[in-house]
Design a protein around this nucleic acid. Structure first.
Lengths: 242, 242
DNA sequence: CGTTATATTGAAGCTCATCAATGAGCGTGG
DNA sequence: CCACGCTCATTGATGAGCTTCAATATAACG
């Protein structure tokens, strides 16, 4: 339970990747050896479906994967958006309760359930690693329910954009961040409608909080105000030009 | 990673207690020996506060404990309501990110961080136990975010009541379930206002879905319709007398 | 180009929050 | 025992915010 490689808590950010790409790959190989399987998928393909037997741990190497469930009324609820460095399905003792679908072209590493089980039983390092992944999942889930509760649509959207933002490299100008999700996907993630998401994005643009040169790319223009919004501002404090 | 004592997934229910009171106590003693500490609190007292160093695992023996955070605007967000058999703060590698407050008189077991750490490293049984607790936490968090997303107030309230309901003993009449939380607590948990919670409860009563003889006790009167509501019905399917 | 998928924008209506007043329950002290 | 104060729940009126339905615009691609 050493604290050494535990990811530090960052408010307003769900589980960030814990190491660099290469470092992570090395780590996986050293902990799980040849059991590490590379799995890729095209947009729309599923890694697994609800009800499938537990498959083990999945880690995103490239692209985006959504974890969703379907309600009886046919509504889709996106529980998690896993991006490079994020893990999913770490809860490996049950049949899957969510569908895992590639949103973009996506490469992942798959650690089969049995290999994880063996490694965890024999290797303290592996155990620690898996604990951290579970913790990462837990924090992602908490972050999401915090996002959903009692925030207005504009706050949810601002928080969402801050979450998916690719921060600037040291010193450089902040780059444009691609929005890999369609409006309807974002809506299903935030518990809004696609129209509302669209309206809020354009409101943030009009107010100068973000740049939105294309419908699928943005840049934070006023970070202070974005942060204030994404935290929990008094409703009136985000006065809009009428 | 044996499946043997893993809690089976139950839709619409967060992590149920995994064993009986006595069984759980025996299990704890055998796994963690004398490290198990009994901790009690009066209503309103805190077990720990946000920012406190990680304390280890807590398990509720009697009463209710709420886990909440405070937003910058002063709003309270109740992340989890832990009742007898539930665990909290299993994520033990970080400073606490939530406040843990006794809602009622509450008795808990506390497994200090270090003792857990030692046991997990040496005892496969203990490891398994802790994994299950983490999984329980994760499922509770997922359940909550499902509860919050895209459900109407009436659905949230119905789902909440089903969640806290004490099911009938075999064959017997369903007992009245005490509502330990105040309206404002329920509201902070569901992301609603206390007035809306009150209105929805009374609407469910008027429609004959529940009995509500006192403001702090209820019984499910029409389980089929309650279940249908708590799942995800088409908006129109819950027609109310106007 | 024309076609399809996605995004934006508008208008109307419904749900829920807000503000405000009233009611019910309960303990305390006269 | 009743009056008072306190806490919590209920109920009403109003308005803001979001969804819904519908129309239009933009982008991607053959």
């Amino acid at each position: 339970m050493a604290d050494g490689d535990v990811v530090r808590f960052r408010p307003q950010r769900p589980a960030p990747p814990q190491t660099s790409q290469q470092g992570l790959e090395d780590r996986l190989k050293s902990l799980f050896g040849s059991a590490v399987i590379a799995v890729s998928a095209f947009p729309g393909q599923h890694f697994f479906l609800e009800g499938d037997p537990a498959s083990g741990i999945h880690i995103v190497r490239r692209g985006s994967v959504i974890l969703y469930s379907i309600t009886e009324a046919g509504g889709r609820h996106i529980q998690q958006i896993a991006r490079a460095g994020d893990c999913f399905a770490v809860d490996f003792s049950h049949p899957h309760r969510l569908n895992a679908q590639a949103l973009t072209e996506a490469d992942t590493w798959h650690l089969p359930r049995r290999a994880v089980s063996l490694a965890v039983d024999s290797e303290p390092e592996a155990r620690n690693f898996v604990f951290n992944l579970m913790d990462q999942q837990l924090r992602a889930a908490r972050f999401k329910s915090e996002l959903l509760s009692s925030r207005s649509a504009i706050q949810k959207c601002a928080a969402f954009l801050l979450t998916i933002e690719q921060p600037a490299g040291a010193g450089g100008e902040a780059p444009l961040t691609r929005i890999a999700l369609k409006r309807v996907d974002i809506a299903d993630y935030l518990g809004l409608t696609l129209e509302t998401v669209s309206r809020m994005f354009n409101r943030l643009k009009k107010e100068g909080l973000i740049e939105l040169p294309r419908h699928d790319a943005f840049r934070i223009a006023d970070r202070a105000r974005m942060n204030a919004l994404a935290r929990d501002l008094q409703p009136g404090e985000f006065a809009l030009a009428s």
